[in-house]
Design a protein around this nucleic acid. Structure first.
Lengths: 180, 180, 180, 180
DNA sequence: CATGAATGAGGGTTCATTCAT
DNA sequence: TATGAATGAACCCTCATTCAT
């Protein structure tokens, strides 16, 4: 809390003018930093029902963008690190972030047409296979300070997604690039 | 520290007869719990130079077995969670676990013959793509207490590895099953 | 202080427009809530010099009415509970409430005629014997939340006063009843 | 808590080696300082069933002795003063001290023979009438620092008890004196 | 080798008080 | 007259570490 106060340029006590408790601050952090991501996920999952492969690509891209934001990863680090002293925080993160992401990705893997496009059979595995590599990268870079990060996260996404294309790799335009 | 003492059946003070500090205890924990895994990695990487695909499969299997051990995941959780109060711990974990795993997997992806077997091009991405899904699963289950864990981790490994087989999925025996 | 502000429908800061400090607010609280009682005491003591027994009865009745007011008891609770952090508050209460009540009751026990009516000899004990039972009841009910309170405080007054009537208990009209 | 630590000559943190929390410390304080008194009460109430008047006298004497101990009064002051921030403390005091004293005194007023000895009719009033004056004295002296305390508490007891003797005041030996 | 009592810094939180607006 | 944002000291409690025994 003191770090937050210092970062905000206010006193320790003043934090409590804005948030009732550490847990409340964390929840607000989730809502402001992570939930927009989750909402993007939900929007895409709904909109992309007819094109599962494209949807999964987009989900990966959104996740990669999210994980490139140190704040987003910091929230996860807190959720993991505070599980002993603030179970409420870990619980909130699990229910509002992790479990929902699982649901969304699994839903995106439902349409029957998917079998024609994607070779991975086990749907519950989907979330792990798509998000896992990006998560690993994010934790490595932002939490563990490994300095081997990708300058171009697209490469990691490509490597992740190639698995689902059954050999026909539309390399040139596997995923639409962002014009940052 | 108190938990460790209680688990060991000794007094809090006695812990300091065996370890100089919390960081030293953590390092010993890494050596006893995580390094055997890393050594398995190294052995396999050296031995399997001629068969990169088989090597990667074996690495994934070892990683999956490691992550199914709550202790192994707990060490990682500590490394992530203590970064603020004990940077030394996080640094040690990065240098002795994460960075070494990166190196090993990348080395295993070096032989020229690999291109014939594996379609993933970007070698630095390899570690993330292989370990990431298993890491995600491990953190979800053991740290965030998500209750959607796989009963059979082999399914997750299969889903992970399928990406590298170029469509020819030798499903029956993709990876040798463990006889639990 | 925040509770006071909320109850008054103003902001926390606005309280300091009316009172210089918490101690000043407390003093004003004493004047508005408790002093009227004390003034009743003083009036009765002066007026009833010729009938000590009747005077003491009236004093008890006034005290009982006062203690039935949660605000009056709350002021005493504050005086007792804040003695560590705000000694000024405790001092004020002692000087302006408790010591004055002692004086008044003792004065009311002075007239020579009293010996004919009241058998209690030790005059300093008078305040305690008259006020004590009512105080006990008030603290029990309003501060300690004991749920054995009297619905009819008159019974307690009767029991208290009976001691002074020397056996001739004019039960029917020992003290004039209030028409609640 | 800091005051307790200082009084004990140890550090603030060391208090928690002996007591789990502030509430636990308070409860231990009740058991060590107040419960012996309560047990005396209970013993007397049981033993003195055949002589209610004598029993009540003894109860008053024990209460007076207890209240002359600043620690005993300090515990009550805490129970009253901490009701906002530590309701658990107030609740414990109510249940383990106040309500039990009520019960004991009322039980002591049950025997049929009492009517011959004591004129007070309303039994629930008994506790207040006996304990109240002593409580008032104790709070005045030890909490509010009134300097009008009785040097000889026996006088207060006498004044309290005289009410029950129906006019026949065995002044010389109303209650056995303590040889302090 | 082992204890257990003790410490002191820091954690999250509350609250009386101040002050620019 | 009134606000509301802000402070800073104090509060209860935890925990890595030390040390006499």
């Amino acid at each position: 809390m003191e770090d937050v106060a210092r970062a905000a340029g206010i006193s320790k006590g003043a934090v409590y003018l804005y948030f009732d408790s550490k847990a409340a601050l964390f929840k607000a952090l989730v809502e402001s930093r992570v939930s927009p991501l989750r909402e993007n996920f939900e929007r895409l999952a709904v909109a992309g029902a007819s094109d599962p492969m494209g949807t999964l690509k987009s989900l990966a891209l959104i996740a990669a963008r999210g994980f490139s934001n140190p704040d987003v990863v910091a929230v996860m680090r807190l959720a993991i690190g505070l599980s002993d002293r603030f179970p409420e925080i870990t619980n909130y993160y699990r229910e509002h972030v992790v479990e929902r992401m699982h649901s969304i990705v699994e839903v995106s893997s439902q349409p029957p047409s998917i079998e024609a496009q994607i070779r991975v059979v086990d749907k519950p595995a989907m979330t792990r296979v798509i998000i896992g590599p990006l998560l690993f990268e994010a934790l490595s870079v932002h939490s563990l300070k490994v300095d081997r990060g990708f300058e171009d996260p697209q490469k990691l996404i490509d490597a992740t997604l190639i698995s689902f294309s059954g050999g026909r790799v539309p390399r040139a335009n596997l995923v639409r690039r962002t014009k940052a």
